[in-house]
Design a protein around this nucleic acid. Structure first.
Lengths: 323, 323
DNA sequence: GTGAAAGCGCTAACAC
DNA sequence: GTGTTAGCGCTTTCAC
């Protein structure tokens, strides 16, 4: 009690307190945080979980999506003196994580609203905040944070439209189930029609699948059906840019490309990638803030937070080529 | 015992085992990892500490030094089923970390061999592996991993020499104490003389300090004393490149620049940064491997591991300008 | 103002 | 083969 110098029903004389401090000092005593946490039945630690089936994301390679989100999460957690731990199998493969006392709460990102995931989530005994999905996808049971995909896509379509593009495709990796990809596609369709453009699924939706076969088929045509494409994520957009150039298309003149996320990674592609931005750092920070609220026994209102998107115009978009 | 299905002196009949499993299932019982760890007096978790006085590094912004190292650490830890936790004040500001039971071991990177650090380290009661310093710096008490800075600098000097450079400067931020920066400087001097070039401290060592004043003084000269500079780290190199261009120097023609670390970040600068590489991912993985050895009660032999450097030639180096 | 005890959930050891 | 106990280090409660 002396060492923690906290309020207590127990009083201790100044002399004794001092004597205790002295002795602790001499003995080199340190409180054992593990034992304390065990007794208090909490860990002051939160975990980060990604959607099932997703490979463990890296910090340094490729798009900085995960790195940016984590920066936000870490920042938010540290501000409140919580630790963040990265666990093996913290990949939705081990539902134990949610119930084994290791964490006080969990940020789960990129969760698809499958029955399996709903099942896993419902068995968790600790608070959870969902990032990149809607509260409605999970029966309004968990606070959610999601970017305004509809608005973001609007920005991109408008940008391309103003440049003069009228034939715009949407590239997606359909195998990687994801609430947002679908939402982005829907938003894309919506904004096309807003601009008086029609959407033909067979022509305008390019699902490249995990093997990317469809990407190469698309790019090996003698004439491209589009003057611009929007790709549902930066990683795939960058692949698309590289592949297009391999197929001897001149970018951005013969094909404008827009990505999604707009981390610094977009400056590494050549041409640099025009991309819809979402405030990933803030999303991470807010997710933790909401999670800690839950941990404190409070509730989150509104249950769902929608954050604005922006558009960062870089070198991969230009006026359509007159060929 | 049944649930952990581990070897034990205690035998239990198959029927009882089954009954136990059934009941556990029904009750939704999960082992409490925290309690188990408490009892076993370990956490299966390692911590990552950076040198004191260093700001908390981010994953997404700037050079990918920390991100790459962490990828290696996480990979190494996960392979052995250890977790990695990021703690607030895990920045060498809180020596408690080393003794409070939170971690089974610590990877400490960018430690300067100051008496203060030696003191802190000596009080730690858990195994530690040091990255980016020499075992000798800390009385051969901890395993160390360090890149072959001397060789790396040799590669860079040779590259510049072969391009035709004879006047080469070395840029450093001296305030950021760091074993490696000094080592790189020494190696630089060595390799200059190997090529018959002289080193004049006042002319060839550009210490920009935290305020960067010296950088701008240097770049505002009407004639640069060098045709090329080597900068002790990529972050500073990138700043140098930007500043040089602001001062209207044409890069790389009027000034070649070489950085150190060579993460993907080097593709984000313009021109892309030629840089000495060190295997950061491997360094992280090896650090964990050695740490787990220590945790297992084994020793590391040799105590110090030296990893090779490479040179990634990008756009920031070319033949010296004839003006 | 001080000292003793109980219990968090776990597992190894021991008695039966 | 089964049941009981002790103790990891901590803090709160209670008795004195």
């Amino acid at each position: 009690m002396v060492l923690n110098n906290r309020e207590s029903t127990v009083r201790v004389s100044p002399e004794t307190a001092e004597r205790i401090r002295q002795t602790a000092q001499q003995l080199g005593y340190r409180v054992n945080v593990l034992a304390r946490n065990f007794r208090d039945r909490h860990t002051r630690t939160i975990g980060v979980l990604n959607g099932r089936g997703m490979a463990r994301p890296t910090f340094a390679k490729g798009p900085r999506y995960f790195a940016t989100l984590m920066d936000g999460i870490v920042e938010g957690a540290f501000r409140r003196d919580y630790s963040v731990t990265l666990c093996p199998k913290l990949l939705g493969e081990n539902p134990e994580m949610g119930v084994d006392g290791r964490f006080d709460g969990l940020v789960w990102y990129s969760v698809s609203p499958t029955d399996e995931n709903r099942e896993v989530l419902s068995r968790f005994s600790i608070p959870i905040v969902i990032v990149h999905a809607h509260a409605s996808d999970f029966g309004y049971r968990y606070p959610a944070i999601i970017a305004n995909n509809r608005h973001g896509l609007g920005l991109a379509v408008e940008h391309l439209f103003e440049l003069g593009h009228r034939r715009i495709g949407f590239v997606i990796e359909g195998d990687a189930l994801n609430v947002e990809s679908l939402e982005r596609l829907e938003a894309f369709k919506h904004h096309l029609s807003e601009h008086g453009l029609t959407f033909d699924k067979d022509r305008d939706l390019i699902d490249v699948h995990a093997n990317r076969e469809e990407m190469h088929r698309y790019l090996s045509a003698t004439e491209l059906p589009h003057t611009a494409v929007i790709v549902h994520a930066d990683g795939l957009a960058s692949e698309f840019v590289v592949a297009a150039q391999k197929h001897r298309w001149k970018l951005p003149d013969e094909l404008s490309v827009v990505g999604f996320d707009s981390t610094d990674f977009c400056n590494e592609t050549s041409p640099a990638l025009t991309s819809i931005s979402q405030p990933l750092f803030d999303i991470g920070g807010l997710a933790v803030e909401r999670l800690l609220k839950l941990i404190d026994g409070q509730t989150c209102d509104p249950l769902e937070l929608t954050l604005p998107c922006g558009l960062d115009i870089r070198g991969s978009t230009t006026i359509p080529h007159r060929g």
